[in-house]
Simulated scan of single mutants.
Amino acid sequence: MQNDKINLSLIIPIGLMLFSFFFGAGNLIFPPVLGQMAGDNIGWGMLGFCLSGVGFPLLGVLAMAMKQSDNPDSIAMPMHPLYARAVTILCALAIGPLFAIPRTAAVSFDTGIHSLLPASCEAIGLPVYTVFFFVLTYFFSINPSKIIGHIGKFLSPMLLICLAVLVVCVFVNPTGSLKMPNPDFAASPFFRGFQEGYNTMDLLAAILFGSITIKAIEAQGITDKKVLTKLCSYAGLIAAFFLAIIY
């Protein structure tokens, strides 16, 4: 591949890959909960949610694109190497074993598998599903050179199709009408939505996901720094677009 060549066949899969990185369990459950709480103030609530839940993570990806480095420490290195390493470790722990990773398996099990199991299998169902879930995740992510193909060209389009079907079904067959907002969203829906956007934890993940995106781009043979910056920036914009539309 030519290092100075940018085309949609490369940009779109990278953007979808980054979108799927960000769109985890929290992204699936928090916006509907916000919508329920915001009621007929949903517009202002979602505007605040998208500012913190989409805009700030996008800035993180753009910052990594400007650094042109696949090392997440590089973004904070000018302050102090130890500080940079501490920030990276804390972000990795927060979006990894401490918070985000456990809920990815738990949410997908509760929303998609739990209702299909007989009562006698509920106790063993989650452990078995969790093992299967993370083995499959490991398979799709172990090879950086194939991660764009596995996630950007295969899993992300499937995810978007499933979400589109879900959204259409909700609009075609709604369960009710917009309700009155709860007190927090009645008084200040924008700022309450802004606070809720942090629950996705995407801001913490932005630097790490940005570095993974750069590494995946480099694995495609792209070494020109300017092209690297453009591809990573376009990927961030594509990911932000789909996140905002789905929210």
Rank of each mutant, 00 (worst) to 15 (best):
Q2G: 07
N3L: 07
N3E: 13
K5M: 10
K5C: 01
N7Y: 06
N7F: 03
L8P: 00
L8N: 06
L10A: 10
I11Y: 00
I12M: 12
I12P: 07
I14E: 06
S20C: 10
F21T: 03
G24K: 11
G26N: 04
G26W: 01
N27P: 10
N27C: 10
V33E: 12
G39T: 10
I42M: 08
G45Q: 05
M46R: 07
M46D: 12
L51Y: 03
G53A: 14
P57T: 05
V61A: 06
L62K: 08
A63E: 13
A65N: 07
M66W: 03
D70N: 14
P72N: 05
D73L: 07
A76F: 06
A76K: 00
M79E: 07
H80Y: 07
R85F: 03
A86V: 04
V87Y: 06
A92E: 01
L93Y: 09
A94E: 02
I95V: 15
P97V: 07
P97Q: 12
A100E: 07
P102F: 00
P102Q: 05
T104F: 04
T104K: 01
A106G: 06
A106I: 09
S108V: 02
D110S: 15
T111F: 11
T111K: 05
G112N: 12
S115I: 07
L117Q: 04
P118F: 02
V128F: 15
Y129V: 08
V131D: 04
F132E: 01
F133R: 13
F139I: 15
F140D: 09
I142D: 13
P144R: 06
K146E: 11
K146T: 14
I148P: 05
I148L: 14
I151F: 00
K153Y: 07
K153F: 03
P157Q: 10
P157G: 08
P157A: 04
L160F: 02
A164R: 12
V168H: 10
V172F: 14
V172H: 08
S177K: 14
L178Y: 08
K179Y: 03
P181C: 04
N182M: 13
N182I: 13
F185I: 02
E196A: 10
E196F: 00
Y198I: 13
N199V: 13
N199C: 06
L203C: 11
L204C: 11
A206I: 08
I207L: 12
I207Q: 02
I207D: 00
L208C: 04
T213Q: 01
K215T: 13
A216V: 03
I217Y: 01
E218H: 10
E218N: 14
T223L: 05
D224Y: 02
K226G: 11
K226C: 00
K230R: 15
C232V: 13
S233P: 01
Y234E: 03
A235W: 02
A235L: 05
L237S: 00
F241M: 03
F242C: 06
F242A: 09
L243Y: 03
L243D: 05
L243V: 12
A244W: 02
I245C: 12
